[in-house]
Amino acid sequence: MRTLKAKILAMLALWVVWMLLTAPWSGQEAIAGAIIAILVAFLPLFPASLLGDLKLGPKALVYMVAYFFVFIKALVLSNLDVAFRVLHPKLPIDPGIVKVRTRLKTPLGRLLLANSITLTPGTITVEMRGEDVFVHWIKVAATDPESATEAIVTGFEKYLEVICG
């Protein structure tokens, strides 16, 4: 069941990429793309198992859309923050690596969390060990794991928990 869901999601993703690539759409291309997408997604070795962690209930879909906007907001705000630090004459940086904790268990959830942390400027995921995530922070505001987790992880985690546990 889980593998079937993963393969169907992978098939949809492949087909959407194909449709975006062939922008002025025609029916023949859509059908040919769909057939190829099914063939590729159902190849025995196609690595789609990661997508099986995604939940598809109505609540998860709402949280997916909300997560998109939360992420865009975090991306813009932190980009402006880093831009300010770059242009400031005194270069107000205070870099360090802090340890934060995550409650996410599934590989996809942890991947999305690490990628989101890295994509928002000011923080880079350096290493993940078990539930500990080591994050390089351009301006260390809190050194103890609890408040660092509150500042970096919690905003993303409460959405990712619903989307993919």
Binding site: V86, L91, L119, H136
Partner: peptide, 19 residues
């Protein structure tokens, strides 16, 4: 150019390019 070490250059260099 302005950042002092590899980590901070990465913060400024590769990250500002995402947006």
């Amino acid at each position: 150019i302005r950042m002092p070490d590899a980590f901070n250059r990465m913060q400024a260099g590769t990250k500002a390019t995402t947006l």
